[in-house]
């Protein structure tokens, strides 16, 4: 009688870690983990940003042999990690303002260079509000000068720290505190979107990537690759937010994966302004699969299905799939 395989990660198509080679396993608690963002912080259960940041900073620290200075924009990550006198950061870390993390990072870099400390790497990070909205001018400046900084944006698609208000990364139709679906309104407007990674690429900086907490190895690899490159680098990480999205904490990874598999969040890398690699969708799913589990989209399904809105969101996914070639030749 054959043994029944136990699936540790449910709701996904991957089997448990134990079927993988040791080097490919996602092990969260080995002793050699850096834990640069150590436990005990105040993030919500299931916080995608905390998970993403931990993998990003650890990977960066590993690459740089712990010689990293981190700069943080105001936001959830900043607030939950530093309820002083407690601090989760095992790395020299500075928070200045909401909209200036890229510039502060440039300053740190300049100081280190003036002091001959080019061995120390500079990592800047912020949420989508701090990065794509209020900090965008500084970010663009940092890109344009090709300052030697790795900037990582943790995109949870709204201003979560202030209680879930719309950002320019909030998807169409999503409910936020400032885009309530009331009357004929179906939540956030259907605009043209703001793809920060593509805008970063338009600066022709050496490395741009999108990543997701759905694939932490891919995230680590992209950070590691970025750390080995000089100049301005940008990684845009999709991080579900149970609070803001209205999803159960245990669904964070599942939702992140659904965003990828529906084509709503494209995973790619770009070098010197050109897309160099794309993560193909293994099994393409309709956007309803992604939208349905999230309360921020509940009004699209109740009291009746808003086929028009869902259709428009599907066409966004379709456009992404076509634009980035997300379906492989055999897909």
């Amino acid at each position: 009688m054959s043994q029944r395989i136990k699936f540790y990660q449910t709701g996904t198509l991957t089997v448990g870690n134990r079927l993988l080679d040791a080097k490919d396993r996602t092990v969260q608690a080995t002793l050699d983990r850096g834990n640069s963002l150590t436990s005990g912080h105040r993030a919500c259960q299931g916080c995608g940003e905390a998970l993403g940041a931990r993998y990003v900073v650890d990977a960066a620290m590993r690459w740089a042999d712990n010689r990293v200075v981190a700069v943080n924009a105001t936001g959830c990550l900043e607030v939950f990690s530093t309820p002083y006198p407690e601090s989760s950061w095992q790395v020299p870390w500075i928070h200045s303002l909401f909209g200036n993390a890229p510039a502060v990072a440039t300053g740190v870099r300049a100081a280190l260079r003036a002091k001959g400390r080019t061995d120390v790497k500079v990592l800047a990070q912020g949420g989508d509000g701090g990065t794509v909205d209020i900090g965008f001018g500084c970010l663009s400046g940092m890109f344009e000068r090709n300052d030697d900084v790795l900037y990582v944006c943790y995109d949870n698609e709204a201003y979560m720290n202030t209680g879930v208000q719309r950002s320019s990364r909030t998807p169409p139709a999503a409910r936020t505190a400032t885009t309530p679906p009331v009357g004929n309104s179906s939540g956030n407007v259907f605009g043209q979107g703001k793809n920060a990674a593509l805008i970063a690429m338009a600066h022709n900086i050496p490395y741009v990537a999108t990543a997701s907490v759905a694939d932490l190895h891919d995230l680590e690899e992209k950070v590691t690759k970025a750390m080995g490159i000089d100049g301005a680098r940008y990684i845009h990480v999709h991080v579900p937010c149970p609070l803001g999205w209205g999803s159960p904490p245990h669904d964070t990874i599942r939702l992140a994966r659904l965003a990828v598999e529906t084509g709503l969040f494209a995973l790619f890398e770009a070098e010197d302004g050109e897309v160099s690699d794309v993560t193909h969708i293994r099994r393409r799913l309709p956007v309803e699969e992604y939208l349905k589990p999230q309360r921020r989209f509940a009004h699209l399904f109740r009291p009746q299905t808003d086929a028009d809105a869902i259709g428009q969101i599907q066409s966004i996914a379709d456009r992404n799939i076509e634009k980035f070639g997300l379906i492989g030749r055999n897909g």
């Binding site: 200045s96 200036n100 502060v104 440039t106 300053g107 740190v108 300049a110 100081a111 003036a114």
Partner: peptide, 12 residues
């Protein structure tokens, strides 16, 4: 001034 803040915090 933000660049100056980062630089000063890094000891320059």
């Amino acid at each position: 001034l933000s660049v100056a803040i980062g630089a000063s915090a890094a000891g320059a």
